[in-house]
């Protein structure tokens, strides 16, 4: 054999945890053109909102349109919050659905799944790494919207102290901090959907199917959440607390919905995660 620079570890020697697979997953995810296209599309949402408000000759009437739309002209920092409100119901779930639905099914479709397993990545480890990648994307997507909103707001509109829902006013620094907490809240909100996408992804070799199913579920969940006849079901829907980040804009911050949301998402992660584990570890990789 040609110059071999490594020897296999002696049997019995515990191998490294192998963070490099996670690193590789992240680099593959964020080097993909598709990922960048989605992030750019998300970044465009606040820009569109801000430009539309800037160009519109008519001032926005208070209480019309999404949260804080009327206040953007007075304070650019509101662009980020308004954009997040706009993105949470559809655009963010759409992109998360693509990434989470692609996790396993995408690898199976490209034929790389069998080679990852032969490496051997280990099925549980691969599942965890793929989920971690989806979670990283959730955070990146949310932060992209918030950061793009903050930037375009600063460029197009005056910046000053921010009015909370309670009518109190906080400084620019604290408003940045709260934006970050909101980004965290939305990331947590999307964890359940990511776990659902991962689960669906283990059932198919057709990534588009898994993506579509995940996105459809996110819409269905939101529709059910709006049917008053099903109010017994509402607290169990993964989208139930999606817009609850408004509680972070009150004075003082109300952490109740943050906690309830985190608990709910953790439940979805536990259930979908174990189902995905059971399905994936028993799956015959025939792709």
């Amino acid at each position: 054999m040609s110059a071999d620079t490594s020897k296999p570890l002696a049997p019995g020697v515990r191998p490294a945890v192998g963070w490099s697979l996670l690193g590789s997953e992240l680099s593959v995810l964020f080097r993909r053109l598709r990922t960048w296209a989605m992030l750019l599309a998300l970044a465009a949402v606040p820009i569109l909102i801000a430009v539309a408000v800037k160009l519109s000759s008519r001032p926005v009437a208070p209480g019309r349109g999404p949260l804080f739309l009327d206040r953007i002209t007075q304070n650019g920092l509101f662009v980020a919050v308004t954009a997040l409100v706009v993105c949470v119901p559809l655009f963010l779930p759409l992109t998360i659905g693509v990434v989470a639905g692609d996790t396993i099914a995408g690898e199976a479709n490209m034929g790389t799944l069998r080679y990852l397993l032969l490496a051997p990545a280990g099925r549980v480890r691969l599942l965890l790494v793929k989920y971690a990648g989806a979670v990283a994307f959730c955070f990146a997507a949310t932060v992209t919207v918030a950061a793009s909103g903050a930037l375009v707001g600063v460029v197009l509109f005056p910046v000053g102290p921010v009015t909370l829902l309670s009518g109190d006013t906080i400084g620019v620094g604290e408003s940045m901090l709260r934006s970050l907490v909101i980004a965290g809240y939305i990331t947590v909100s999307l964890l359940g959907l990511s776990a659902i996408g991962l689960l669906i992804s283990t059932f198919t070799d057709v990534p588009v199917g898994a993506m579509a199913a995940t996105i459809v579920l996110s819409v269905v969940s939101q529709v059910l959440d709006n049917l008053p006849q099903l109010d017994w079901l509402h607290p169990w829907l993964f989208s139930h607390h999606w817009l609850g980040f408004a509680d972070l804009l009150r004075q003082p911050i109300d952490w109740t919905s943050f906690g309830a949301n985190a608990l709910l998402q953790a439940g979805y992660i536990a259930v979908c995660g174990t189902l995905a584990y059971a399905k994936f570890s028993n799956k015959d990789i025939l792709s």
């Binding site: 590789s24 069998r114 080679y115 490496a119």
Partner: peptide, 24 residues
């Protein structure tokens, strides 16, 4: 196994690095 399977958007070495990193 049953033909090669690679990430079309990565280079050849990129693909090998990816698969090698899966091996602990």
């Amino acid at each position: 196994v049953e033909g090669p399977g690679f990430y079309p958007f990565l280079t050849g070495p990129g693909n090998l690095m990816r698969l090698d990193s899966a091996d602990r």
